[in-house]
Design a protein around this nucleic acid. Structure first.
Lengths: 219, 219, 219, 219
DNA sequence: CATGAATGAGTGTTCATTCAT
DNA sequence: GATGAATGAACACTCATTCAT
């Protein structure tokens, strides 16, 4: 029988909720990136976070909620990073280039965020795919509006050779795929990656092969 | 080897092994496409296949083996479909265009195969990711060799504006992403999809916006 | 349509039932000895026997029946071997010695039989334990009657220092345990093994240490 | 059979880990003793323990681990019981006698422990058999050193009539076998059992039949 | 006679989730 | 606020057993 006033166990330090939530989200992103949604276990997340499991449920909800919040947070981070890189007063191609650079810088710096967003978010059935796809679409339109708008101005409507959304999807896919590739080639700088993509989508192989090369005009 | 499936009797409870294996693989592809590797249950697969679970294990092995065999079969199907569409005597751009058409036709026709290959195969840790990535790389080089080789001939080595593997990754990503998009737009024909991609990667946005348009020369 | 291949496919030779049964029992003893009753699988038995599973069921019945028949056959073999070695006209100690020799010879020669009888038969719940125990008891009384009877004649009844069945159990246990030990020491001949046991149970440690030694009188 | 649910160990909801572990181990020993390793089901163990299955896995690990821990605990108990009974200052025969009494007392008191150790531990393939055999050997040498050492002192080396390890195996087998027999004869006291064995191995049948009887000298 | 084909029923194991403290 | 204790429910996998041919 312990009747003496027990000194508060140092074991569990009472931290403000916001801090705990960040700890947990960080751990969750890490674990989700490593194993994917289904293979990730709440046990591992709680362990990595240094927090007991009930706390996760109290603060962030069930596994699916937790994953959703991870996705949201990382998606916001990514969008902010890209938007921060774009300078609206530049010509379209330079805007695109700067946006791409920001994107690749982000991917290189926050690999796990990117992994969760790109690879893992689609494996979860239900609402997530839509949510992610939507976010993806907004992202692409943000970037692709530049060129699509240009095309539209020139009178290229929804004719066979041109489709705003279709091309956007392709463009984003190209950018994403190159991002994945870049994860295995960290020695390639974000500027170079952005340039490659510019040459692909802006000039096309044909011009490129003809010796034409796109280069940033402000470097 | 008599490989001719003898006309299946109306209500044969007792089927030869090869037939059962196909049934099971078909069901597995369907279920894996629907839920992903982890969320798919052997119970559902057996149910869809109209076969008891032990049969699956006897014929195709454990879950991971089964998935591997699905991936292999579908990957072969895809490769064959694409290769069948390419005509080596045509000029490079036409070869590319025909290959892409075959690809989009396949994706449209075998949505589930494509889903398994593109989205689900990467969610399984271990050997699969590598296997798929490898297959993807071989596929891309098959197609991209056309243009990359052209670029290399023109003296574009591994300089900052050009990279064989990097651009290949981007190109394949664009094609894949457009394929995903096309799944939600079945009204767009494979010819049109292929054209869009050609215009993107062959001419580039710049030329496109300037009014230049790529068109198949043999239609 | 098979036209003129008169000899039936060599694949499945139609053998008389008795032969098949022996094949199966041999295989079963082997597999039961290797894995024990529960860990042994009908599949492995059928494979080792070179016979399809339905045949096992047709000829020998279910797994438990099969095991029972294995045990019975091997027990009979053992009993016959021991009985064949005993010569009733010799004095008790020599009878015991010859019986033990036969026993150890059998164990050395039919290791698997011994394993099934001694180690595996007891792990199966239900009727088997009793059956085996019974068989064991009969075996022991067969052998121990010699000495126990002698003791009883001398007026040693069920007093504290003497008990027929109890001592018999101990004696048989000693013989069995030495048999197990001998499996790992095949270089020790059955004559030597029998001698050891004779010295232990006939003379006892005390006499043995005093320099008294029991030796077969007819060698 | 006895299907009466023996009062589940209290309905105490929240118990400290150590208590639960003991409950589970107790239940496991009971069930393993009743059915053997393979036929025992984790379900029954959890039911007998009054605990859900996941707890077993959390606290004691998988089935094989659980069994290993049972064996270890019971083996320790047995060794301690025997060692506690031996008094090193007594002459060899009295030491042996006291050791045997302790052994039989333990077997009578903890039937299930004995069953698990003696009968079931060998049915599990792999490391366990070796572990148990080893433990058995150490146990036997602990006890048999007394007599074997005596024999060796007298100049009885590894000659045909005498073998330390071989005789030890036999001796232990005799003791074990008598223990099994005693399980069905609970009315025989451990002192009597020990006496029987002493008369068998110390004096031998011959002396016994001649009217010589070994008796404890300190009673 | 002989077997490939097929399965019902059960096993060990894990995981997201929630109380009681 | 924070957690160790506890579980329901499901899943992958196996095996003894039996038809239909």
């Amino acid at each position: 029988m312990s009747d003496e006033a027990p000194p508060p166990p140092e074991r569990a330090r009472r931290l403000p909720r916001a801090v705990r939530e960040r700890q947990i989200l960080d751990a969750a992103v890490q674990v989700f990136a490593r194993h994917g949604y289904h293979a990730a276990s709440m046990d591992e997340i709680s362990e990595v976070a240094g927090v007991s499991k009930p706390m996760i449920y109290t603060y962030l909800g069930a596994k699916e909620d937790l994953f959703g919040k991870c996705v949201q947070r990382e998606a916001n981070r990514l969008l902010e990073a890209v938007q921060a890189g774009v300078q609206p007063e530049l010509p379209p191609d330079m805007q695109l280039w700067h946006g791409l650079r920001s994107f690749y810088r982000f991917v290189g710096e926050y690999r796990e965020s990117w992994t969760v967003l790109h690879r893992q978010a689609l494996t979860v059935g239900g609402t997530f795919a839509a949510e992610i796809t939507d976010m993806r679409m907004r992202a692409i339109e943000l970037v692709a509006a530049l060129v699509v708008a240009a095309g539209t101005r020139k009178g290229l409507g929804e004719q066979a050779e041109f489709s705003g959304t279709g091309l956007s999807a392709a463009l984003v896919g190209a950018a994403e795929s190159l991002a994945d590739w870049a994860l295995d080639h960290p020695e390639i700088s974000d500027g170079v990656l952005a340039s490659w993509l510019m040459n692909l989508v802006w000039l096309g192989f044909n011009d490129l092969v003809e010796g034409q090369v796109w280069k940033p005009s402000d470097a």
